[in-house]
Simulated assay, not measured.
Amino acid sequence: MKAISLMQPWASLVAIGTKKIETRSWSTEYRGQLAIHSSKGFKKYLRQLCCEEPFKTVLNKAGLSLDNLPLGRVVATCKLVDCIEMTPEFIDRVKSAKGHEYDFGEYAVGRYAWILEDIKALDNPVPAKGKLSIWKWEGKS
């Protein structure tokens, strides 16, 4: 299965189904099953972000906190169904939608929105060494 590494808290936000658009500076032609891997590194500014709103409340509702976010593990699987170059109109649609999707991404014209569907959190996240770009995960979901 193909995989992509995301830093925390974004990996867990995808796993709990709150983040369904992964924002990237690059596009991909790949469509299909995708494992979501949480990077092992957890920088100070990302740890602080977990204590700020809306991150803190959303994570807490899912039983997650700064102290128990899985690191260096595949946390979910999903389907990557589209990759859209962001336009002002697209960004406005995301910004005006219900929920916190806009808060959980980096939206700017020229960046890319990876549209994720059929997200399934793994009951027991699987240890894995991440890589840059899209990579092949040999584990089982």
Rank of each mutant, 00 (worst) to 15 (best):
M1I: 08
G17I: 02
A3Q: 09
V94Q: 03
P54I: 01
C78K: 01
S25V: 11
E22F: 04
E89G: 12
E101V: 06
I16T: 11
E117I: 00
A121Q: 13
E53R: 06
L59E: 06
L6W: 08
L6Q: 10
G17L: 01
V58M: 03
M1C: 00
S27T: 13
E52D: 14
W10A: 00
Q33W: 03
N60V: 05
D118G: 09
R24P: 10
K61G: 10
G110V: 00
S27A: 13
E89F: 12
K136S: 13
G130N: 05
G110A: 01
E29D: 12
S27F: 06
L46S: 09
P9A: 06
E101N: 02
E85F: 06
H100P: 10
M7P: 11
I16K: 09
A35N: 09
E101I: 01
T57A: 12
K95G: 00
V126P: 01
Q33Y: 06
Q48K: 13
V94P: 11
A97N: 10
L59I: 03
A15G: 09
E101D: 12
G17H: 07
R73G: 02
L66R: 15
W114Q: 00
I36G: 03
K19E: 07
L46P: 05
E52K: 10
G32K: 05
A35R: 08
V81W: 02
W114N: 00
L13P: 12
K120V: 14
L49A: 12
L69M: 10
L66V: 12
K79F: 07
M86S: 03
V74R: 02
L122Q: 02
E53G: 05
M7L: 15
G32L: 09
P9C: 11
K56Y: 13
I119T: 05
W114D: 00
D67G: 13
S65I: 06
A76T: 07
S5N: 06
K95F: 08
R24K: 11
L66K: 15
N124T: 12
W10N: 01
L34A: 01
P88S: 13
G41M: 11
